[in-house]
Computed example of a mutant assay.
Amino acid sequence: MEVGIFDILLLFSSLAISLAVVVPLAGVLVRFRANYNPKSLQLDPEDGPQPHTGPIINSYFGMFKRVYQLERLSGLYKGFMPTFLSTTAVTLVLLLAMDDPKPRHGRYSAPDTGVLGTLFYGILMSLIGLPTVILTYRSTTTPHKLPWLNLMQSLRVLLTPTERRRPWVLYLTPGLLAAEFAHVGYVTLVLGTLRRLLLPALSKPGIPTPSDFPPLRTIIYISVVVVSTVVLTPLEVISTRLAIQRNHALSEHNSVSQEVDGDAEDLPEYSPEEDVIGLRNEEDPYIGIVDCAQRILQEEGLRALYRAWWITMLGGLAAAFT
């Protein structure tokens, strides 16, 4: 299929409109899940009790309101550039390499190659997209006003010297790949396999007809997708927490020990008087996916692992029938 100038303009216009809507909503979700809100007193290095002074936000819409109040419209579009660049790159690849003018927006959209082929595709896309996910989450949660057109200065703020010298360290972020792979594996092996068994028409070319949705099978599948929120939401919260946890100078005992980095000192902040969200102290990092889950439960409670669960559920239902 030949792609004309009009098709390209239409495609990128549609992309721009989509990002204008999606970026603020996704950015608020990242902040809500990243916000550190311990339920008890914390101890300082001298074991003295210190009350937590960060914001207490208990809902997605409460976080949306707080972001707008403190950072205004520009704050809602933090993380736009890495999202725009990565989405544009994927779109160009689809246009030039796959000759397909319709970009796939789904996280695990893949050619119909069977369960194992889809799993391999999902894992590969996770590996390719991991640096972008990290940069997007960190640019969304940083209090600093990053320059939109100065990539190197932004990288000096978002990445530690260790990460800039050895970019592959991003893949060694404790527990992050495990959380991402667990998410891909569950979506592909459990939900994907079940969809093929119960609603095979959705995996075939063409538009399904009402007869392709037997009531009992459809109800069973929808129920499983809804229940799967119990598994997928904690994985998404954990991935968010681990992605914003920076890797500092390597040492014998702690791969995230601190190093001096003053690259953000000259940049203004969106809200210098009050933090929009609270972030966990990097001097006491999560050391893996299990450790992250346990600490969130111990320090913040079960609700923290299920922040914005309804967004995960709605996303799962939307993806189930596309």
Rank of each mutant, 00 (worst) to 15 (best):
M1S: 14
V3S: 07
G4W: 15
F6T: 13
F12V: 07
S13V: 13
A16H: 06
I17D: 00
S18H: 10
A20K: 00
V21L: 12
V21A: 07
V22H: 03
V28L: 12
L29Q: 04
Y36V: 08
N37C: 10
Q42T: 15
L43S: 13
E46F: 11
G48N: 15
P49F: 07
P51D: 07
H52E: 15
T53W: 00
I56W: 05
I57M: 10
I57N: 09
N58A: 09
S59F: 12
V67L: 14
Q69D: 14
L70C: 10
L73Y: 09
S74P: 02
S74M: 12
T87A: 15
V90H: 09
V90Y: 04
T91N: 13
L92C: 15
L92K: 03
V93D: 02
R104C: 10
Y108C: 06
Y108A: 09
S109K: 12
S109V: 05
D112C: 12
G114F: 11
V115M: 14
G117C: 13
L119E: 06
L127I: 12
G129M: 11
P131H: 04
L135G: 07
Y137C: 06
T140F: 00
T142S: 11
T142C: 08
T142K: 01
P143E: 01
P147G: 05
M152N: 09
M152W: 05
Q153D: 08
S154N: 06
L155D: 02
L155S: 05
V157Y: 02
T162M: 12
R165G: 03
R166Y: 14
P167W: 07
P167A: 10
L170P: 05
Y171F: 14
T173P: 01
G175K: 02
G175V: 02
A178I: 13
A178M: 06
A178S: 10
E180N: 10
H183Y: 15
V187K: 01
V190Q: 02
G192S: 07
G192M: 07
L194W: 11
R195M: 03
R195W: 09
L197P: 03
L199A: 05
L199N: 03
K204W: 06
P205L: 11
P210T: 03
P210E: 10
F213S: 09
F213E: 03
F213V: 04
R217P: 07
I220H: 08
S223F: 14
V224Y: 07
V226P: 02
V227P: 00
S228K: 02
S228M: 11
T229D: 11
V231T: 12
I238E: 08
Q245A: 14
R246W: 08
S251Y: 10
H253W: 13
S255E: 11
S257E: 05
Q258N: 04
V260A: 11
V260Q: 07
A264H: 05
A264N: 04
D266G: 06
P268D: 01
V276A: 05
V276W: 00
I277W: 01
L279F: 04
N281Q: 06
D284Q: 08
D284F: 04
Y286K: 00
Y286V: 01
V290I: 10
C292M: 01
A293D: 01
I296A: 02
Q298W: 02
L302C: 06
R303F: 10
R303V: 04
W310M: 06
W310Y: 05
I311K: 03
M313S: 04
G315N: 05
G316F: 03
A319P: 02
